[in-house]
Structures are given as structure tokens and as C-alpha cells.
């Protein structure tokens, strides 16, 4: 059980920006995510509305998964109602050593990032021959 617990990516609280200005003066939002686990892999879904594939960067460095999505839009005039404004997204997760970072896959569809984080194939139990 403890092992399963270890595969849960944790938010690096200090690193995840929630509507805060960064040094570049740009506003970032923390995208909502679903994380679920199947036998072979961990799956992350993140809502990134307005992010185009070339504005998206997914990195793994030192066991930290970073999702960064830039939104570029022309400013429009003549708003009668304005309930949302699109901002860029940023969020980080700590991922466990049991994830095979080489085989992480990412796809962007309908404004949702789909990440597949395959688990490392567990070393099989091996019988050690005893020399006599």
C-alpha cells in the first residue's frame, strides 16, 4: 500500500502559482487536474483551455513534472459580458521513482492535456543459485 502512495505526484506547493504574477509580470493559473492510476501507468488530465500545441511545454527534471501552457490571444473590444479571461498555466508535480520518465506520453485534445506516465517494469523476483 505504501508503494502505491509513493506513485502519487505531489504538488510542489511553493512552485505552483495560483493567479500570481511571476517575475516576468505574467499571470499564471493553476490548471485543475485529474490523476488516476491503472495497473501499468499513471494518467494525468489537465484542463488547459486556449493552449495550442506549440504553446505547451511538459518537462521532467529531477523528479519534478512541470506543465506550462502559454495562451496567446488578441485582445478583443466590445465586451457585453466577461466571465473569464484566459491566462497561461503552470503547475508542478513531484513524481515517484517508479515512473519511467523516458516513456511519458503527452497529447493535447479539446483543451485538455492527456499525460501517460508508465510505471517501470518491476524487477522480477529472482532465485539466487547457491554455490556448493
Amino acid at each position: 500500500m505504501a508503494e502505491i502512495e509513493k506513485t502519487v505526484p505531489e504538488v510542489a506547493e511553493g512552485a505552483a502559482a495560483r493567479g500570481e504574477s511571476t517575475r516576468e509580470g505574467e499571470l499564471y493559473a493553476m490548471p485543475p487536474v485529474d490523476i488516476f492510476e491503472k495497473e501499468d501507468a499513471l494518467y494525468v488530465l489537465a484542463d488547459l483551455p486556449g493552449v495550442k500545441p506549440d504553446g505547451l511545454a511538459v518537462n521532467v527534471e529531477n523528479g519534478v513534472l512541470t506543465i506550462e501552457g502559454k495562451v496567446e490571444r488578441e485582445e478583443k473590444a466590445g465586451y457585453l459580458r466577461r466571465e473569464f479571461a484566459l491566462t497561461s498555466f503552470y503547475r508542478q508535480f513531484r513524481i515517484a521513482e517508479t515512473i519511467d520518465t523516458e516513456r511519458i506520453k503527452a497529447a493535447l485534445k479539446n483543451g485538455v492535456l492527456h499525460l501517460t506516465l508508465p510505471k517501470i517494469e518491476r524487477a522480477k523476483a529472482r532465485r539466487i543459485p547457491i554455490e556448493t
Partner: peptide, 28 residues
């Protein structure tokens, strides 16, 4: 009470959030 730039937690408010833009000939 503040503006949220993305979909907030479930059931928190009206969904989907809308922007309405008007010009002389059309609404967006």
C-alpha cells in the same frame, strides 16, 4: 469573490463561463 481564469471546482458556479462580445453586425 475574485475572478477565476479557469474552470473552478465542481458545482461552484455557472458552467460554462461565457464572454459576450458585440460589434455592429454580430455577437460573439
Amino acid at each position: 469573490p475574485w475572478r477565476l481564469a479557469f474552470l473552478p471546482g465542481r458545482g461552484a458556479r455557472k458552467y460554462p463561463q461565457l464572454n459576450v462580445i458585440e460589434d455592429e453586425a454580430r455577437y460573439e
